[in-house]
Design a protein around this nucleic acid. Structure first.
Length: 499
RNA sequence: GCCGCGGUAGUAUAGCCCGGCCAAGUAUGCGGGCCUUUCGAGCCCGUGACCCGGGUUCAAAUCCCGGCCGCGGCACCA
């Protein structure tokens, strides 16, 4: 157990890790945070912010972290059955583990129980006015006349709502707040409404329930009952915090500490759930799915070759500021590059290939280092007079050095060996270039995400590429980092991560 | 329109609560150098910011007021 925040920080720094600013009101061992996604879509980089920060703070203070699925709207934000597990996969991949897991749709009886309690306390009422009528009254600072009915009446109507005797729009449970609050949505906000689940079945509980809690109602109850001490979420929830506080007051509960941070935009990437959904349904041939590397979804970034640790570092760096952050991809790439560089194996890949002949020696055993800091090599035997592929653009020099082969003099499409001295190459600033043996190259297609498009580049890689499998991340020498995506017979498809 | 939050270098962030040690730290980017028997990296040096205007004070990035700009919310969505 740590005595203070200062010690927590010291401990972290000892491990060489980035630290977050202290969490207000946090006591080591007692912090409890949660990440509460709506399973209507896979999570993206923006969602990773509350997830990673909440998790990080919980771990930092040796507290608990909860994963909670907020799936209480089968009508307009219909949860998708497979998304629950996809989100869990994404979180695991990000290195997030959780101590407790809940699904709100399985907790409706709990919300009903609290609703009854709240009605008995006079903190909520059943509104059976037509929706437009209630609306007009609330705008004027008044309310549906049923607000003043006796508590017994409300309790009865509530049971009718639960039993399914009311149809959609015929009755709602409202929390009493302040009918003169400047924000109209705060005035007597809706806690429970009817959703006809015979028309909109819920992927988990089907058509079992008709009375569904709204976000604010379910969140409040869960945060209280689960003992959440700190709520970290985006500033789009600021008004919700206000609404929820009325409920906490009615029930005499203490509100957790809430922190609202700004939005996180990754420039040039689509993060909007609705837009991605639309693109996928309208262009099924153009996009690859939730994990298309052109999308800012967590799985998209993974397929692009972004490491989970890079995402974590970015989020920790951005922190809990209230302002929006516009992060460029090159910034994320810079973090990723640093992590990738020390472990990505090197492969010689030639784009824009041109066949040339090498002469002026007998036979050279070219040793290509798998990685500059490892003493393992791939070996290619090259005889004088044989052909290799190099990038056409590299031919514009008088002399050049071919990695592992030596220094050469350029004469048209013929390269003549002039020595193997590296210092000569350095001294004369010869470009040190990659090449691929002509008789055993690997056809390679590179997909470079550019906005919503792919720039496709065909090229040839050295045979060593075949030692790797989809998902492996490599550096194509003088080209950039790539992630092997799929193997298509003789061809290898890779996704370009970044330079 | 109403309500709320915020504005530090190209980008991101520290500092702001508890004014002085901040002629503002860090990362990335950019420029230059060094090292290395091969790409990359690493190391060193340099570049560059407190939205504007008033006020309080011996002293303001930090406190107060006004303006401007950005963002969020104003659902029987989450």
């Amino acid at each position: 157990m740590f005595e203070s925040y200062a010690e927590l920080v010291k401990e972290k720094e000892k491990q060489g890790k980035k630290t977050l600013p202290p969490l207000p009101g946090a006591e080591p061992g007692k912090v409890k945070t949660r990440f509460a996604p709506n399973p209507d879509f896979v999570i993206h980089l923006g969602n990773a912010r509350p997830a990673i920060l909440s998790h990080e703070y919980a771990r930092m203070y040796k507290g608990k972290f909860i994963l909670r699925f907020e799936d209480t709207d089968p009508r307009t934000k219909s949860p998708l059955g497979d998304v629950y597990s996809l989100i869990k996969e994404d979180l695991n991949w990000l290195g997030i583990d959780w101590d407790e897991e809940y699904i709100q749709s399985k907790r409706l009886p709990i919300y009903y129980e609290i609703a009854r309690k709240l009605i008995r306390k006079g903190g909520a009422y059943i509104d059976t006015c037509p929706r437009e009528v209630s609306r007009e009254l609330i705008v004027k600072g008044r309310a549906c006349p049923t607000r003043d009915n006796p508590i017994e009446w409300h309790l009865e109507q509530f049971e009718k709502m639960v039993e399914g005797e009311y149809g959609e729009g015929e009755a709602v449970l409202r929390v009493k707040t302040d009918l003169s609050h400047p924000d109209l949505s705060v005035r007597d906000w809706v806690a429970i409404r009817i959703i006809d689940t015979t028309k909109y079945p819920h992927p988990i509980v089907g058509s079992k329930y008709f009375a569904w809690p709204t976000y604010n109602f379910a969140v409040s109850i869960d945060d209280y009952m689960m003992g959440v001490t700190h709520i970290l979420r985006g500033k789009e929830h600021q008004q919700n915090t206000l609404k929820q506080m009325y409920l906490f007051d009615h029930l005499e509960w203490k509100y957790p500490i809430a922190i609202h941070f700004g939005r996180l935009h990754l420039e040039d990437f689509i993060m909007s759930k609705s837009l991605i959904r639309k693109l996928l349904s309208e262009n099924p041939d153009k996009f690859w799915g939730y994990d298309d590397p052109r999308f800012g979804t967590i799985r998209g970034l993974r397929r692009r070759g972004i490491l989970p640790e890079a995402i974590r570092q970015l989020i920790l760096e951005v922190g809990i500021k209230g302002t929006d952050s516009r992060v460029s991809f090159s910034n994320l790439a810079a973090i990723n590059r640093k992590l990738l560089d020390e472990k990505a194996h090197r492969i010689m890949f030639v784009s824009n290939p041109l066949k040339v002949q090498v002469t002026g020696f007998d036979e050279i055993i070219a040793k290509i280092p798998v990685h500059p800091s490892i003493k393992v090599h791939r070996v290619y035997k090259v005889r004088s007079g044989s052909e290799i592929w190099i990038n056409k653009d590299d031919l514009g020099h008088k002399q050049l050095r071919l990695i592992g082969l030596g220094n050469f003099e350029v004469d048209g499409k013929r390269l003549t060996f002039i020595g193997n001295d590296v210092s000569y190459a350095k001294k004369n600033k010869l470009p040190i270039i990659q090449w691929v043996p002509a008789e055993s190259s690997v056809e390679t297609r590179v997909y470079k995400p550019i906005g919503l498009e792919f720039e496709v580049e065909e090229g040839l890689a050295e045979p060593g590429l075949l030692e790797y499998k989809p998902g492996d991340q490599l550096q194509f020498i003088r080209y950039g980092f790539i992630r092997i995506d799929t193997l298509e017979k003789p061809r290898v498809n890779v996704v370009f991560s970044h330079e």
